[in-house]
Each structure stands twice: as structure tokens, then as C-alpha cells.
């Protein structure tokens, strides 16, 4: 089966800056492809070109067989977009937003109403659909933002950092729904700067930095490129703030990088066994309760570190 998306040598230049520099990749139908990269890497610019919002400086891409530069309307029919910034009308209710965007995608009447019902169930907002968006929490807005992209059942869905700035429960719900969508046959291009998200979701991953794809493949393929590093994940007790620990842990010899996320801390080290005792000791010293510990094989964070010498999040 032909890939649903083929990006070929995409370049986008803003003045002197090559925001996207010769990016090529393919996405197979019914899979999740993650574009993983730090802030300013060029993720949004890539999605903007693929979704026909901006024209590439050079290069092209085929979506469902249509060229993004020459057949933009056909491409738009095939794709759904969940933008990084919430793009909704705050003075309209969720229902009114969904009706408007559904109509923009050519839905109407009974079909539109039925589809809105399904989407409201998917994003779990049926109860509050008749309230204005401006009364919603950040997480609820994110969910409606996603719901709008799903209305016309696109074959290919672009999701640009859909979990930025929300609470752990909402993040969980969104990650689960992305997998459900994939299992229902939708193809998803997902961008993130959270290594954990890319690891959990992706069938294939592209790592992007300074506008260039520096690695491309399945997670197994990518991690095989990294030598001997391990990842240790500490799951902290409830209400523990991981940030206290981070500084202390970074001083342990053999620790390459420490990252806090929600109530977790991930540690990249040359050898997990060697540092484990020291890590637990530091946590006790600070009085931080550790709920459980996971040891992981080399991961995407380590791949990024290996390729760039930097951490994904600084």
C-alpha cells in the first residue's frame, strides 16, 4: 500500500533562517508518526506546509496522492488539523464551535448533528457542550480543539503538540484517544517535545532539530544507534514535587541527564545498576518518597542526547 504522506525535500526559509531544511519522510496508513524535537526545531513549520497553510520554499509532499503545492483543496479535504495554539471562538459554546467548523468541512443537517454527538462523546464533553468556551478549563479547551479536527473523519490527522500546558489526567485522556483513533484506522502525524509521548504513541519517529531530520525510523531502529546508556524512571509518591530531586541527582557520577515530568523523574545514565543505590539514597536524604522505579532500555531521549549532545528539554 502506498504511504498516505510522502514529504520530499521540504524547505522553508524565513529570511536568513532555514526553519525547515530538506525534510523528507513517509507515513504509512493507519499508523502514528511522531515528529519529536525541541522548541523551535521546525515542527509547526513542517505541519503548516503539509496542511497547505504556507507554501514551501522548495520541495513538495503528496497526501493521499495529491500535491500540497498544486492540489491544495483536495489535500485539505483529506486532512484534519489540530493546531498547537487553541483555535476556537471563545464567545461561542463548544456546540456552536463544532457546528461552525463542521459546516466549514461541508457537513450539515442530521449528519452534522450525529457526528457532533460522536465527537462530544470522544472528547467527553457532552454535558458541558452548551457552555461558552471561555468558561472552560485549559484541558477542556484542548479537547474541543482536538474535537474540531476530528469532525469530518479525516484520513490523516495532524496534531501539533496537543498536550502542551495541561494537567496529567487530561494528558492521559488525550494520549489514550490518539491511540484509539489510530486503532480505528486514522493516520496521525503527532508532534511533541516530550520523549515519553513519542515513545508511548509512535509506530515510527522522526527526530527534528534546527530544521533537519536527524533520525528517522522505528523506536527499535533508533535506539539501536545509541551505545550503552540506560534510563531510570522514578515514579514519585503523590504530591511530591520532582524538581527538588533534579539538582541533587545531576551531581551523581555517571548520570548524564535528569528530566522531571509530572510526578516522574527520568534519569539517563551510563549504567542504571551502578547509580540506583545512590539515587535512592539522595531521595531519602531529601525526604522524597519514591513509589516505584523502572529501568528502561536505551530510549529516544538518549538518542537525541547522543545525536546532538543536548537534552530535548532544557
Amino acid at each position: 500500500m502506498a504511504p498516505i504522506l510522502e514529504a520530499r525535500h521540504l524547505v522553508k526559509q524565513f529570511g536568513d533562517l532555514k526553519a525547515v531544511n530538506d525534510v523528507s519522510f513517509e507515513v504509512e496508513q493507519g499508523t502514528i508518526f511522531s515528529l519529536l524535537g525541541p522548541n523551535g526545531a521546525g515542527k509547526t513549520t513542517t505541519i503548516s506546509m503539509l496542511s497547505t497553510l504556507i507554501k514551501p520554499t522548495s520541495g513538495d509532499a503528496l497526501i493521499d496522492g495529491f500535491s500540497i503545492t498544486r492540489q491544495s483543496v483536495e489535500v485539505r479535504r483529506a486532512i484534519g488539523v489540530v493546531p498547537q495554539e487553541i483555535a476556537l471562538y471563545e464567545d461561542l459554546t463548544a456546540m456552536e464551535n463544532l457546528v461552525f467548523w463542521g459546516q466549514m468541512y461541508g457537513l450539515s443537517g442530521q449528519a452534522l448533528r450525529a457526528r457532533i454527538g460522536e465527537v462530544l462523546d470522544q472528547i467527553d464533553l457532552r454535558d458541558r457542550a452548551r457552555e461558552r468556551i471561555k468558561t472552560y478549563s485549559g484541558g477542556m479547551k484542548r479537547r474541543v480543539n482536538i474535537g474540531v479536527g476530528l469532525l469530518h473523519k479525516p484520513r490523516l490527522l495532524f496534531m501539533d503538540e496537543p498536550t502542551v500546558g495541561i494537567d496529567p489526567q487530561s494528558r492521559r485522556a488525550i494520549l489514550d484517544s490518539v491511540k484509539t483513533l489510530r486503532d480505528g484506522g486514522m493516520t496521525i502525524l503527532y508532534t511533541t517535545h516530550y520523549m515519553e509521548e513519542a515513545e508511548e504513541l509512535s509506530d515510527r519517529v522522526g527526530i527534528i532539530d534546527h530544521g533537519q531530520l536527524i533520525a528517522l525510523g522505528t523506536q527499535a531502529e533508533l535506539t539501536a544507534r545509541v551505545g550503552e546508556t540506560d534510563t531510570l524512571i522514578l515514579h514519585l509518591g503523590e504530591n511530591e514535587d520532582p524538581h527538588h530531586l533534579v539538582e541533587a541527582l545531576a551531581t551523581i557520577p555517571g548520570v548524564l541527564k535528569v528530566n522531571p515530568l509530572d510526578s516522574q523523574v527520568s534519569i539517563i545514565a551510563t549504567s542504571a545498576e551502578e547509580i540506583l543505590a545512590l539515587v535512592v539514597g539522595k531521595a531519602n536524604e531529601l525526604g522524597t518518597r519514591i513509589h516505584s522505579v523502572d529501568m528502561r532500555e536505551p530510549n529516544l531521549e538518549a538518542v537525541f542526547l547522543h545525536l546532538t549532545g543536548r537534552a530535548l528539554r532544557d
Binding site: 493546531p83 495554539e85 483555535a87 467548523w101
Partner: peptide
């Protein structure tokens, strides 16, 4: 500014 214009522009219309 809010991105709803961009969202309309990626819907299937000119």
C-alpha cells in the same frame, strides 16, 4: 492572532 483564521484557511475552501 488567535489562529482561527489559519484554521479556516486549511479547511477545504479558497
Amino acid at each position: 492572532r488567535d489562529g482561527t483564521l489559519q484554521r479556516m484557511l486549511v479547511a477545504p475552501t479558497s
